[in-house]
Design a protein around this nucleic acid. Sequence first.
DNA 1: GGGCCCTCGTCCTTA
DNA 2: ACGAGGGCCC
Length: 771
Amino acid sequence: MTTLPGGIRMRGDSRTADDALLADLNPAQREAAAAPGGPLLVLAGAGSGKTRVLTRRIAWLIRARGLAPESILAVTFTNKAAGEMRARVESLLGRSVRGLWIGTFHAICLRWLKRHARAAGYGPDLAVVDAEDQLTLLRRLLKEAGYDHTPRRARELQAIISRAKNRAQTAEEFAAEAHTPAQLVAARLYTAYQEALRRQNGVDFDDLLLGGLRLLREHAEIADHYAAQFEHILVDEYQDTNRVQFLLVERLARTHRNILVVGDDDQSIYGWRGAEVRNILDFKKHFPEAAVHYLEQNYRSTAPILAFANAVIARNRGRYEKALWTERPGGELPEFFLAADEDEEAEEIARRLSAEADAGRPYRETAIFYRTHAQSRPLEEAFLRRGIPYAIVGGIHFYARREVKDVLSYLRVLVQPRDETSLRRALGVPKRGIGERTLEEFFACLGESGCGPLEYARAGGPASASARAREALARFGEWMLALQARLAEPPERILSEIVASSGYRDHLRHEGGDWEERLANVDELLESARLFSSREEGGVAEYLDQVSLLTSADTVAAAADRVTLMTAHNAKGLEFPRVFVTGLEEGLFPHASALDDEEELEEERRLFYVACTRAMDGLTLSASEMRRRYSTGAGGISRFLIEAPRELFADTGPQGSWGGYGGPRVHATGRAREDAESARRANGGNGGWGRPVDSAGGRRSASVGDGSGAWSGSAGDGDEHPLVGRRVYHAAFGHGLVTGVDGRGDQARITVRFQAGNTRKVLKGYLEWEP
DNA sequence: GGGCCCTCGTCCTTA
DNA sequence: ACGAGGGCCC
């Protein structure tokens, strides 16, 4: 008998597991999987078999407890996880579990909103608006309201609206709380945005959740119906649920109170998206009678990997104290190496990968994680050079590619002509003589015309438009209405008809550039529609729903023997025998935007912890001394490595890179670049290794502003304008003259006219001041 | 007015 | 390096 943290005493084998379903679970897993009912919190560390517990519990509820599949609701984090979990349960039970509700919160809410469209206040054929369309719409609204409508502003606004929605705050509630001028503007636009969505019968991702919640709140009979139906509710990755998702779960669990949530506060990585780790920390407050189970035995990683990961996460405050352990014997220390720049970092990874492949490790066993998508490029280039097959998860999502969105926009218009964003897109691409001006008038007059958008187009649109534009509109309307009459046909047939008769292929060819790749993507889209038709029941509308809810994590191709590249966020829930975590530099991982906020830093640390704990046998960490990123360099080795006990990882840099490293450079310094530059020169600029470290190899002061180095000439942080006219040297761009200053301190952006003739804005920290 | 070309600011993570 | 917007020509 053991007492676990939190004072939960656990018996050994309880022998409630008379069912073979639970035979191979450990006692803690079994207790959770066969728990009698009531609220249950399972704190499951990385690799502790939580998916196993969830699938076994669902199977156990159905077989041992005789529950009907439709009385169980299981919420997963991705559609892929839902599909896998369903398949797993079916194979455990040897029967179909048709009727089981399993999916992401978003997919489940969409299902409700469609099923109860009228009650939810939507028309039929509700369409999901993706992030890009959301931005397009917001920019248009900003412009119409006379505000700055740069993509940046639109993104800021999108984030504000999204955060409000994730707190379950409607436009009206948000407006009521708005005080500062900026908040009032945001409130106005939030309202306008919701009206625009409403006009086109659209919902964004956050609306799916909020709409689902509103449906349950405003229609007690519907809420009671589902609350009665779902005798058992299971939620995976509970640490990454937001307020709205909590409220949904809480409402649905009210009748039976059989709510099992599984999560790990150390793996909460979506705070920026509105996830509230409080949901899991406060579970016992919300459900006072809840039992708590801890899963701390890790079945995934070797002891050295776990020891390193445990040490990393132990730096965080505000967490349930816990430590994973394993019975796995042996294992190598995690490795670290420092490269001169990102090309060499990528090259070294490719080199190690090739060697391991030669030694018999299949490529598919290896994954490479990075903090931002932009880091994939050097890796791709290195892999291409060495002929290493790879697949990128995420990045520019397939369905977010311009050519794919173009073609899909026609399909969306057919299903929902009021979708203004898609209609604007379809009208404009390929060019058919309908320009900005005509579009504005078209939509301005559409309302008064009293007919639908396609009929209005067929009639020639606004009388004020040019004869050419009117003719083009009429042809477009005619064509779309003819296609609309065929909507009962399979999506694939409609889609290929669209591609064929729109002249889209010619349009792409004419565009030049990477048209071949774009053309291939269009063909791949047609193939995906064909696959949908062959696999799923449902027409064009269902096809579009599926496309909208697909996520990057859903498209991991498992079959081929390839290395997988993805962001650390996308890695959640996965495991690989061999893992590389790259770009471990201050400002990148942890990301620059988190450096001045302790909570955000802790989230970065959790993200790093998630990345490391994906590894089963091998973990290699890497960093670059220099990085071309918005014309800036790297910020020194990540604090996540600096703060880890030195004996928990091995420095495998060819020249003992760590040994010469002078300590944490928490802020980017000019020295880092300078060193990297001299390293490149010393290596003849080729892919050679290492940087010439201080010959002494000892510690070296690298603190910013120590007055001894390149910094001494810098003016104070007060008045920056005396800097204009100063001569400077930049490691990458050479000598130049300051022509402008933006901001203060080391974060100031200095405009420099370089001798080469180019003018650039660079961070002050990267400049050396010449006399 | 519509479309092409060139210059400029810009990319953190996502259901 | 990529897209958006401004300028310019049809």
